[in-house]
């Protein structure tokens, strides 16, 4: 094993331990942190969740670099967020879901998404407005997930450093 790899594993192990100690110290119930595995749909129906999951995976798909929105279970995160939002937000989703379902049944999921996304900067129809809402939720859910943060962006921070390594590239100075 390379030294860097070993260090990484040690660091992650230490972090995990620190995190569980921290949870205990805060007296938080184990269900405090949201985990998609035990989530029960509270706003979407099973059919709606399947459609949202499929659409979100098209917005942020798996590629050869990292898994996508499906693996990150972003649709379940969306269900949590919408089900705990105010009535106006829920109605916005309800209208959007209906418009999207209608479009999907008329053509295909891929074609419906393309049509919804066609006017992203100035959405005018219910379907177009829903794309903006759906994409925003996909971005929020994916890039706050373990997959989005660690596997896709390869984020290196949220650590304890003894010193901060500044830029040492002459070209930038």
């Amino acid at each position: 094993m390379k030294r860097r790899q070993a260090l990484k594993i040690v660091t992650l192990g230490a972090l995990a331990e620190a995190a569980s100690q921290s949870v205990a110290a805060h007296g938080l119930a184990s269900g405090y942190a949201w985990t998609p595995g035990d989530h029960h749909l509270a706003f979407f129906s099973e059919d709606e969740n399947r459609m949202i999951d499929e659409l979100m995976e098209m917005i942020i798909p798996a590629d050869d670099h990292s898994p996508g929105a499906h693996a990150a279970q972003v649709s379940l995160f969306a269900d949590l967020m919408v089900s705990t939002s105010d009535v106006a937000e829920q109605q916005r989703w309800r209208r959007g879901l209906e418009a999207m379902q209608e479009e999907v049944s008329r053509s295909s999921t891929a074609q419906a998404l393309a049509k919804a996304a066609a006017n992203e900067s100035h959405p005018e129809t219910e379907l177009e407005r829903f794309f903006v809402v759906l994409k925003r939720m996909t971005v929020d859910g994916y890039y706050t997930s373990e997959i989005g943060i660690h596997q896709d962006l390869n984020y290196q921070g949220n650590a304890y450093l003894s010193e901060f390594p500044g830029c040492e590239h002459e070209a930038h100075h």
Binding site: S22, A33, W34, G141, T144, S145, I149, N158
Partner: peptide, 9 residues
């Protein structure tokens, strides 16, 4: 805390 450790990220 990481976002995914918080109730609403």
């Amino acid at each position: 805390k990481w976002p995914y450790e918080l109730p609403y990220r």
